Amino acid sequence: MIAGELYLPGDSELVADRKRAQSLMRAYNDTIMGDAARGDLLAALFGSCAADAAVRAPVYVDYGYNIHIEHGVFLNYGCVLLDVCAIRIGAGTQVGPAVQILTADHPRDPETRASGREFGRAISIGRNCWIGGAAILLPGVTVGDDAVIGAGAVVTRDVAPGTTVAGNPARPLVSSAPNA
């Protein structure tokens, strides 16, 4: 699964891993800012999470252990991180409310899809990015450092460093502002 190969999501080990994540999510989502348990819960839920990262509850994950959050990251309310493969969020990145970061994918071939097998592709988000509310990042995309994803954008392709994208599908915006 983590390598992007086809897998069966009903595998007993994966079911147990999702139950573990659901228990930790429930506990975390029942906390409020300032609760002493928050840091410990995030450390248990995520593969890695910098101590100064801010994750507003509720947050939703598949497994949690494939999520890696660096220094100074901010995730606003209601983010969905489907982490069948790695999700890496670089230092200083800000993620708006209701953003979906989706590594989970399904075969395009109808026979393979009917078999119940799935796969995923990792997502990497660089440093100092800004992802607007309700944006959706699809499997396999890489967002470069200092990029901006407009609110509601559907990111289907890689975003180059320093680029602003918006729309469905997300496309680079051309700025008319002079360079400072």
Score class of each variant (00 low, 15 high):
Asp109Val: 07
Thr112Val: 15
Pro107Met: 09
Gly140Trp: 01
Arg113Gln: 06
Thr142Gln: 10
Ile125Gln: 02
Asp145Cys: 11
Ile125Asn: 02
Gly116Asn: 07
Ala98Ser: 15
Glu111Ala: 12
Asp145Ser: 13
Glu118Gln: 13
Thr93Arg: 05
Asp145Asn: 14
Gln100Val: 06
Gly120Arg: 09
Thr93Asn: 04
Gly96Gln: 08
Gly92Asp: 07
Arg113Thr: 10
Arg117Gln: 13
Ile101Phe: 00
Leu137Ala: 06
Gln94Met: 06
Arg108Thr: 15
Asp145Thr: 13
Gln100Thr: 13
Phe119His: 11
Asp105Cys: 11
Asp146Gln: 11
Gly126Lys: 04
Gly144Cys: 04
Gly92Thr: 07
Thr103Ala: 04
Ser115Phe: 13
Gly132Asn: 04
Val141Cys: 05
Asp109His: 07
Arg127His: 08
Gly144Glu: 03
Asp105Pro: 02
Asn128Val: 07
Asp109Leu: 09
Pro139Asn: 09
Gly133Leu: 08
Ile89Phe: 00
Asn128Lys: 11
Gln94Trp: 00
Ile123Phe: 01
Gly144Leu: 05
Gly140Tyr: 01
Trp130Leu: 15
Val143Gly: 07
Pro97Asp: 12
Ala98Pro: 02
Ile136Asp: 02
Arg117Ile: 08
Arg121Cys: 03
Ser124Phe: 06
Ser115Pro: 13
Gln94Lys: 11
Leu102Arg: 08
Leu138Asn: 12
Ala135Cys: 10
Val95Tyr: 00
Cys129Phe: 02
Asp109Gln: 09
Pro139Lys: 06
Phe119Gly: 04
Ser115Ile: 11
Phe119Asp: 03
Ser115Met: 15
Gln94Arg: 09
Arg117Pro: 04
Gly120Pro: 09
Val95Trp: 00
Ser115Trp: 10
Gly116Ser: 07
Arg117Leu: 14
Ala98Phe: 13
Trp130Gln: 14
